[in-house]
């Protein structure tokens, strides 16, 4: 059983929760995720790690309540317990093993969409702690749905926003904002790390490919065990089948077959609707919503 230590509403329907999970807090590195199960009848829900505090054994997760299981999760309060919490799963981000000196020379851009903004935080924080510079472009439907603005603004002065309705920052999708930064503002990037909903990652990857920026995406397919056992998370990368849970979740953005990934992500949608689930977190928006 894992205790909920803190719970915050970040935006309408988007919560952050601090969970007491010392082993996970100690081991987690940027790029990794966890799987939790609310109760004994629950699904295994993969979620990204937003932050960790090793000394306190705390793991912060961010969750958007979109389906039955995530709604049940956010209905829990401080002091309540979550049945199961396992991780960190997946490989850490590749940059964790790179030479710090080399990383400091790179011009890095993070591109986040919606709840996908949350997993960018530990990556950006890791770089900030090591004096590595980066820019961040965050997209959301509307200003109200932008999360973690204050936290990110402490890490970089180059924080850009894009909203679909133009209520904050650039008017348009985040990929258009990136194009604007590069083509009109004269910014240059050597690496773009893109995390968000599958469709956002697809279009942002297309944009960075056009702009010639090497890019990484963090995929969020359907998973059951998250340890390599079920193969539900298969994704085609550069013509090869990979398991996102053990080979990923991060892959070369320009090699991922997004159309297949999007199709596979919707595999249980019909079943879920039948079962009166508005949307199922396990299948749909798992890691990034």
């Amino acid at each position: 059983m894992f205790e909920i230590l803190e719970k915050k509403l970040l935006a309408p329907n988007i919560y952050s929760m601090d969970i007491l999970a010392p082993r996970v807090a100690k081991a987690a590195l940027p790029g990794q995720f966890i799987i939790l199960r609310v109760d004994e009848r629950g699904e295994r829900i993969p979620l990204t790690i937003c932050d960790t505090k090793r000394e306190e054994g705390r793991v912060t997760i961010v969750v958007q309540a979109v389906g039955a299981s995530t709604k049940q999760l956010v209905s829990k309060e401080v002091g309540d317990y979550i049945r199961d919490f396992v991780g960190p799963l997946g490989k850490p981000s590749a940059f964790v093993n790179e030479d710090i000196g080399e990383l400091r020379k790179k011009k890095i851009l993070f591109a986040g969409g919606g709840v996908g903004t949350a997993p960018i935080f530990p990556q950006a924080k890791w770089m900030w702690e090591r004096g590595i510079d980066f820019h961040i472009a965050l997209g959301a439907r509307t200003r109200d749905l932008i999360i973690l603005e204050e936290e990110f603004s402490k890490l970089t002065d180059n924080l850009y926003f894009a909203t679909d309705d133009g209520s904050y920052g650039f008017h348009g999708f985040v990929n258009a904002a990136i194009e604007d930064l590069v083509l009109n503002e004269g910014k240059e990037y050597d690496l773009c790390i893109i995390i968000g909903p599958m469709v956002m990652m697809k279009f942002t990857a297309m944009t960075t490919k056009k702009l010639g920026i090497p890019s990484i995406v963090s995929l969020n397919p359907i998973m059951v065990d998250g340890t390599g056992m079920c193969g539900a998370c298969r994704v085609t990368v550069g013509g090869e089948t990979k398991f996102a849970c053990v080979d990923g979740p991060e892959f070369d953005a320009h090699l991922v077959d997004f159309d297949e990934a999007i199709r596979r992500q919707n595999q249980y949608r019909e079943v879920e609707i039948e079962r009166d689930h508005e949307y199922c977190q396990l299948v749909g928006g798992l890691i990034n919503g």
């Binding site: 059951v224 056992m229 193969g231 539900a232 298969r234 994704v235 085609t236 089948t241 596979r264 595999q267």
Partner: peptide
Amino acid sequence: ENLNGVFSANE
């Protein structure tokens, strides 16, 4: 093999 509706027996 990655079409929707193809599963491993494990899954």
